[in-house]
């Protein structure tokens, strides 16, 4: 994980440690830089304001006033936000376990579905992919290409077909063939489109008819380069599709995905996986400590 996230450690934040004066006192200017570092990482203003208030408090009243000690306190507070909830994928032992991958357009659902199938394969499961993005041109071919690359069977829909039916068929196929887990890719949809969100709700309901209690996991894929709108997306998807966990993608760039703090805080949704590259192996479990360290790196 460190390797994947290491690339995000750039420029600005390292200035917080400029000159290696590790025991230097906290100054007003430094506090300003800390605040900017947090804002720049897309943390919500509300959260940053609350962090900064606490920091000023501990500096003034607890006499914790050196840069490394204050940074440690901030890191601990942020880690605590992400440590909420169970990060294990749900539904272990279900036959088959069913995982739906949902999110807005271009967030990286198809790639994430493929990477997740590969992870599950490597952990000894026998995954089956379901290509239920019947809307976007060639989305099915995209997942089929991935399925071939990683050596996982796939059940595909027809272009413009009923996506709920594809997931239903895939679950039944998995039951018949004895696949232990179904990973279903769905079409990207903006959370503002009522009819598309209704369609997603239907996919979730129909999946439950294929296997009692399914889906076990609804993973919302959030583009890590997105800003405060990610919070609005998470709210709406959770409402319409009963999201159970978050995947943050595109963390191999310079963006830090800080919007997830507000999501974890407000919706109590665990961030389960992180996308850190374009290769099939570039999906890693969330490690809150490492995630926060990438945001506020130690001793640059």
């Amino acid at each position: 994980m460190k390797e994947g996230l290491a690339r995000t450690r750039f420029g600005f934040i390292t200035r917080l440690f400029a000159g290696g004066e590790t025991s230097s006192k906290v100054t007003e200017a430094w506090l300003g830089e800390l605040e900017e570092a947090l804002l720049r990482a897309d943390l919500s203003v509300t959260l940053v304001d609350s962090v900064m208030l606490q920091v000023r408090d501990i500096v003034a009243f607890q006499k914790i006033d050196t840069v490394p000690r204050v940074l440690d306190a901030v890191r601990d507070a942020l880690v605590a936000v992400l440590a909420n909830g169970d990060r294990e994928l749900r539904g272990a032992g279900q036959k088959p376990r069913v995982i739906l991958v949902v999110g807005v357009n271009g967030s990286g659902k198809t790639t994430t579905a493929a990477k997740l199938a590969k992870r599950l394969l490597q952990s000894g499961e026998t995954p089956l992919l379901a290509a239920a993005d019947t809307f976007r041109a060639a989305a099915i071919e995209q997942l089929e290409t991935w399925a071939g690359r990683i050596g996982v069977p796939i059940v595909s829909g027809r272009p413009d077909g009923d996506p709920a039916a594809v997931v239903f068929d895939a679950v039944n196929a998995a039951i018949a063939r004895g696949n232990s887990v179904v990973v279903a890719d769905t079409a990207g949809r903006l959370h503002t489109k009522g009819h598309l969100m209704d369609e997603l709700g239907k996919i979730v309901r129909v999946t439950g008819r294929a296997r009692e209690g399914a889906p076990d996991e609804v993973l919302l894929v959030l583009d890590g380069t997105q800003g405060q709108n990610a919070i609005v997306q998470a709210r709406q998807f959770t409402k319409d599709a009963q999201v159970t966990g978050i995947v943050v993608t595109k963390l191999d760039g310079t963006a830090k995905g800080g919007a997830v703090f507000a999501i974890a805080d407000e919706l109590k949704l665990p961030v389960k996986l992180l996308g850190v590259g374009e290769r099939a192996d570039d999906l890693i479990p969330m490690d809150p400590r490492a995630f926060v360290d990438a945001l506020l790196p130690k001793g640059a």
């Binding site: 804002l39 720049r40 990482a41 897309d42 807005v104 271009g106 583009d223 380069t225 997105q226 800003g227 405060q228 709108n229 990610a230 997306q233 760039g253 310079t254 963006a255 830090k256 800080g258 919007a259």
Partner: peptide, 12 residues
């Protein structure tokens, strides 16, 4: 550029 992009959009 995605309208939903965050702070890093400028850097990119």
């Amino acid at each position: 550029v995605d309208a939903m992009a965050g702070q890093d959009a400028v850097e990119a």
